[in-house]
Write a protein that binds this DNA or RNA. Structure first.
Lengths: 148, 148
DNA sequence: ATATTAAAAGACCTTTTGGTCTTTTAATAA
DNA sequence: TTATTAAAAGACCAAAAGGTCTTTTAATAT
């Protein structure tokens, strides 16, 4: 559904928040391991997220990643759009052609409610709400546990 | 939603069928122009579709692409899967993690009905049904008409 | 102060996707 | 029977995505 960068970004953000709830401030090595992503690539992605203002970090001893808790909850959609752009949420949805504004193909119309549902899903779910969900249950859910 | 190859493949197939209804057998140049795709790439993709058995072709004068009309209608899903594999229709849908069979994250559950809708859409719509839709209305719908 | 720790920066590499172009093969009309 | 037409085959190229690694900067504990 999303590209790797977005996947790792979302997993990483949720993991950081999950640890922050426990009073911890994880570093790149720990995060990469726990979200099952390549270490250096994870570092690069987290740095980008910091630059974009989604996340905070400190260098040096005791350093790591954390959230500014005074900020509002972060909808998945904000992260997805920042990384992938608007594409996922516009156009015909099938690219079968470029529908003009008043001439939609039948796919366009059939896809409209689906696009709406996706939009709702990524707007309503936030990094924080997911972290809360995971925290109630099994933290292992973030790691790859089956061969699937 | 889909990659370029799938997009061009679907557009090309619909266009071929649209012309076949009119008793014509279009070639690569015409198809590429009408579906707004690169000529050589379109050729390559159509050849793949022929090899996969979705489409027929003849070389030489009067040659071009056409369907075996004795075959059943071709669901979009068949084409999409042949080109992109299973990925679009399995897993968590968010890749937020790899959910094991019995431990789903809340996204997994929220996404399930959406995946179902998409599945239904690409299973019910066929190259032929789309061609029929286009044929009733505006053929121009296949070409890019706005700057969007 | 300085050794240590950990993120930031950025160069670099690999794979996949998207796209181009030339040569070969096959069909058919003259 | 050959000139013409059009797809098939496949080599090749470019951009984007995904990933690795080294060097630099900043924080902090001693």
């Amino acid at each position: 559904m999303f590209n790797k960068e977005t996947e790792y970004a979302l997993r990483g953000l949720v993991y950081v928040h999950l640890q922050q709830i426990k009073g911890l401030k994880p570093g790149i090595l720990e995060i990469a391991k726990e979200i099952d992503a390549p270490v250096f690539y994870t570092g690069k992605i987290l740095q980008r997220l910091v630059k974009m203002g989604f996340l905070q970090s400190t260098k040096g001893k005791g350093g790591g990643f954390y959230f500014d808790l005074t900020k509002a909850d972060l909808p998945l959609k904000s992260v997805i759009q920042a990384i992938e752009g608007e594409k996922a949420y516009s156009g015909c949805g099938f690219g079968l052609k470029s529908c003009s504004d008043d001439q939609h193909c039948s796919l366009h119309e059939q896809y409209a409610p689906i696009r709406e549902s996706i939009n709702k899903l990524v707007s309503q779910n936030t990094v924080q709400s997911l972290a809360r969900d995971f925290n109630g249950g099994d933290t292992i859910l973030l790691r790859r546990v089956t061969s699937q």
